[in-house]
């Protein structure tokens, strides 16, 4: 079974938006999106359960995104493909999903896994868009995945319980962060990651047309950035005389909340 895991490098620590470009500032240190680590872990488990196959990492980003891919390689993935092209800068969901779909067509995966969301922008949309482009069934919020008889059985976590959904292969699955506990890369894995195949491809290599990438290929535009409105209706209670509890109660009573 060939499993492709789509992963993203995100800025480490607090994300910052560049007010000039209105894009995420990717100038600092980067890290593997933590939600994607769940997808990598699940891919490795699926591979182990079938006893054969390959786990391939796929990402779109600047050249330094390879650092994040190496962490996933150290976890146990077999090889990595990075789509890196200056023309892809500023790609929104529509443009990104197109480039990833083109790469996935080339790979011909049985299963495509995503994490449930991006840790920087909190976007949770890419997997469905990619599935739609590839015309593949998609299951989101997977809390359990089993493979048998050429199909996946997925336990989908919802607000009300669980749905059990079957999908034939190939399929796209976005895993919940509750599905597993990602393994820590071993020292041997970290050392071995450096020698695993790591391919960087351009948009042209994938046949992505110039007008379907970057800002030109995007359908959304950030028009403005603003700070959230100040919270005016707040009251700070300092317990300097031991009467804070009473003060809180009086405040709530005044608001008719108790």
């Amino acid at each position: 079974m060939k499993i492709v895991v789509c992963v993203k490098q995100i800025p480490e620590g607090n994300s910052r938006i560049d007010p000039g470009t209105k894009r995420l500032d990717r100038g600092g240190e980067g890290a593997l999106n933590a939600f994607d680590a769940n997808a990598v872990e699940e891919a490795l488990r699926l591979k182990d359960s079938t006893g054969e196959g390959e786990v391939v990492l796929l990402s779109l980003g600047p050249a330094k995104a390879l650092d994040a891919l190496r962490k996933a390689l150290a976890m146990g993935a077999d090889r990595a493909v990075l789509i890196s092209d200056q023309a892809a800068a500023g790609s929104d969901l529509v443009a990104t999903s197109y480039a990833l779909a083109k790469a996935l067509e080339r790979e011909g995966a049985d299963v495509v896994l995503f994490g449930q969301q991006a840790g920087d922008s909190d976007g949770a949309v890419l997997w469905a868009a990619v599935a739609d482009r590839l015309r593949l069934p998609v299951v989101s919020q997977a809390a359990e995945i089993t493979h048998a008889d050429g199909k996946l059985t997925v336990k989908r976590q919802t607000e009300f319980g669980y749905d059990v959904i079957e999908a034939p292969l190939p399929a796209v699955v976005a895993v919940s962060d509750a599905i597993n506990e990602p393994r820590y890369p071993s020292l041997k894995g970290i050392m071995g990651a450096k020698s695993k195949p790591q391919e960087t491809v351009t948009l042209a290599d994938l046949g992505v047309e110039a007008d379907r990438a970057g800002e030109q290929g995007s359908r959304t535009e950030v028009s403005a950035l603003n700070d959230p409105p100040a919270r005016g209706d707040s009251k700070k209670i300092v317990d300097d005389d031991g009467n804070a509890a009473q003060a809180i109660f009086d405040f709530l009573a005044e608001k008719r909340l108790v």
Partner: peptide, 19 residues
């Protein structure tokens, strides 16, 4: 949000059981 939508993929899914 995707520009090339056609509803070709829905029939492949089968909800086996919903708990």
């Amino acid at each position: 949000l995707v520009d090339s939508y056609t509803p070709e993929n829905w029939e492949y899914l089968n909800a086996k059981d919903c708990h």
